[in-house]
Design a protein around this nucleic acid. Sequence first.
DNA 1: ACCTGAACACCGTTCAAGT
DNA 2: ACCTGAACACCGTTCAAGT
Lengths: 188, 188
Amino acid sequence: MVRQPAINAKDRAPLSIERIIEAALQIIDGQGLGRLTMRRLGDALEVEAMAIYHHLPRGKEQLLDGLVAHVAIAPADGRKAAGWREALTRWAHAYRKRLLDHAGVLPLLVTSRNPAALATTTASLREVLREGGVPEAAAAVAAHALLSYVIGHTALEVRGTGEDAVEVVDWDARFDRGLDLVLAAVNL
Amino acid sequence: MVRQPAINAKDRAPLSIERIIEAALQIIDGQGLGRLTMRRLGDALEVEAMAIYHHLPRGKEQLLDGLVAHVAIAPADGRKAAGWREALTRWAHAYRKRLLDHAGVLPLLVTSRNPAALATTTASLREVLREGGVPEAAAAVAAHALLSYVIGHTALEVRGTGEDAVEVVDWDARFDRGLDLVLAAVNL
DNA sequence: ACCTGAACACCGTTCAAGT
DNA sequence: ACCTGAACACCGTTCAAGT
């Protein structure tokens, strides 16, 4: 006879940090950061909230650190860029998309939480500049100005896109025009 | 006989929205946003937490909206600027200082909460550009790029200044160099 | 008008216990 | 090793009551 799992055995995929982070992102993206609680997260994972502590001993703090780390990585754009300016434009678009896709995590990004994750983002941007042949000294300023612009723009876009928005704005167009302005200065 | 207040009379200044906001800012600046609770706020004001609801019927939501409104107003710089570039530089420095002085409120600023407060900030910046004689079309892009840069830089600065900072950085110098880059592009 | 006290439904987290 | 259940100290908020 083939061995059957007992009726009461909970033979589902065991918990893992990846599954926990994924479920947390789904709650945040769907209901907002304020509704992310350990108990609700446990429900989503079909587990008691306390089980999460077995995988994240530092509890909710560690969970939030993990969320920041997750959005820090801008997915690489496969296409080959014609020059450093096009490469930077693509990087900026990819990072903005990442931030907007998980806009609920944004408040965590403007905290001193998990500063190591920020280094990841900076490194990927510096790599694009290096490949584009931008001199080291100019690259440092350019990277900082560009990253600041993308983060700041996204913050403004999120604020201006809420339910009771004050003004109707084409945020795609506004982003591109500001980006052009910043990139023009890099060229000087 | 001169009328004396009874021993048990609580003859202290009555609660007001201004006093509540002020006390909340003090808690945030000193202990962080996470430790701002209605009960602690009540303690700071020497009142039961429930008394706050008499002045802020929408409760903590309304309190947070008020905090966002408070940091939205960049204090005017008294000195007379020599030209639009100097005027913008001063505006940027003043706004960065405001954000850093209340860095704990920053997470609230990257939410869709109280979008009307954002209009206040934008208006003050647009006024500087108007006085500087920057043409309307260029001013719109410049204002957005500059405001984004200042907000984004401050977010990065707060992240890079925490207790377990990864790198030592002269944030004043970095801010100025990025600001110069953005302002150079406005000039084109 | 302004504040209090008790109560309710929720939170994050600990700890001993189960399998 | 992995998860549960009960418990603790805390939240935001309501509502009736006090002055």
